[in-house]
Simulated assay, not measured.
Amino acid sequence: VEDCGYTNVWDQFSKELKEQFGLPQFPLMYTADWLCRLEYGWGFKEASALKQVARCHLPMFFIHGDKDDYVPTWMVYQLYEAKPQPKELWVVPEADHAHSYLFNTEEYAQKVKAFVDPYIR
């Protein structure tokens, strides 16, 4: 079960940089990416949920609030498209970031159970 996932670190950091500080990607994102490569051997675009779900053949249930402005809802559609079957998507009406369960506890539990049950019995 994947709830509120982002596409990759570059996308998420760039979004936050713009929204919280009004700054463009260049030069800060490029400099931070370069420093990360230098220090750790990987870059922000390599830290990619998109690349990982594309390789995953296990069942995956994607959940995302349609009012999520921290990890934008558009990201779940890219993740879902990248993932091979079996998969399912639930975009939760009126839920913001990480509140799908809080606002829809019974429905959330029912949907997760319905998705997981065939694979664990």
Results as ranks from 00 to 15, higher is better:
Thr105Gly: 04
Met60Cys: 10
Gln25Phe: 03
Val112Asn: 06
Pro118Val: 04
Glu106Leu: 06
Gln78Asp: 14
Val91Cys: 04
Val71Thr: 15
Lys113His: 11
Trp74Asn: 13
Leu102Gln: 10
Lys111Ser: 00
Leu79Val: 03
Glu81Leu: 10
Asp66Phe: 06
Glu94Gln: 15
His57Asp: 14
Val9Gln: 12
Pro59Arg: 13
Pro72Phe: 12
Phe26Leu: 15
Arg37Asn: 05
Ile63Ser: 02
Glu107Tyr: 01
Trp34Ala: 14
Val92Glu: 07
Arg37Leu: 02
Asp69Met: 01
Phe115Ile: 04
Met60Arg: 11
Thr31Val: 15
Ala82Trp: 11
Ala54Phe: 06
Val112Arg: 11
Glu2Leu: 14
Pro84Cys: 01
Phe44Lys: 09
Ala49Ile: 11
Trp74Gln: 13
Ser100Thr: 07
Thr31Trp: 15
Tyr101Val: 00
Lys83Gly: 06
Leu35His: 08
Val116Glu: 07
Thr7Asn: 04
Arg55Ser: 08
Asn104Gly: 03
Gln110Thr: 11
Val1Gln: 07
Asp117Tyr: 05
Tyr6Gly: 10
Glu19Trp: 05
Gln110Asn: 11
Gly22Trp: 11
Val76Pro: 00
Trp34Glu: 08
Ala82Gly: 11
Leu89Gly: 03
Val91Arg: 10
Phe62Ser: 03
Lys18Asp: 01
His64Tyr: 05
Gln78Ala: 11
Ile63Asp: 06
Ser100Ile: 03
Tyr6Asn: 11
His97Val: 08
Pro59Leu: 06
Gln12Leu: 15
Glu81His: 12
Ala98Gln: 09
Ser14Ile: 01
Ala47Gly: 11
Gly41Trp: 10
Met29Tyr: 05
Lys83Gln: 09
Trp34Asn: 08
Asp96Met: 01
Phe44Glu: 09
Lys111Glu: 03
Gln110Val: 10
Glu94His: 15
Gln20Leu: 14
Gln78Ser: 03
Asp96Asn: 13
Leu79Tyr: 07
Gln25Met: 06
Glu106Phe: 04
Asp3Asn: 14
Asn8Lys: 04
Glu19Val: 08
His97Trp: 09
Val91Met: 08
Phe13Leu: 15
Gly65Val: 00
Ala82Met: 09
Gln110Pro: 00
Val92Gly: 03
Gln20Asp: 14
Pro84Gln: 04
Cys36Ala: 10
Leu17Cys: 04
Trp34Asp: 02
Pro118Lys: 09
Leu79Ile: 04
Asp68Pro: 01
Glu88Leu: 05
Arg55Tyr: 00
Tyr108Met: 00
Leu89Ser: 02
Ser14Phe: 09
Ala109Leu: 13
Ala109Tyr: 01
Lys111His: 11
Val1Glu: 09
Phe44Gln: 13
Val9Trp: 08
Ala95Asp: 04
Ser100Ala: 15
Thr105Lys: 15
Gly65His: 02
Leu35Asp: 03
Asp96Val: 04
Lys111Asp: 00
Glu107Phe: 02
Tyr77Pro: 00
Lys15Ile: 02
Leu28Gly: 06
Tyr101Glu: 05
Cys36Phe: 12
Pro84Trp: 06
Val76Ser: 05
Tyr6Leu: 09
Gln78Ile: 00
Leu35Tyr: 12
Asp96Ile: 02
Lys15Phe: 14
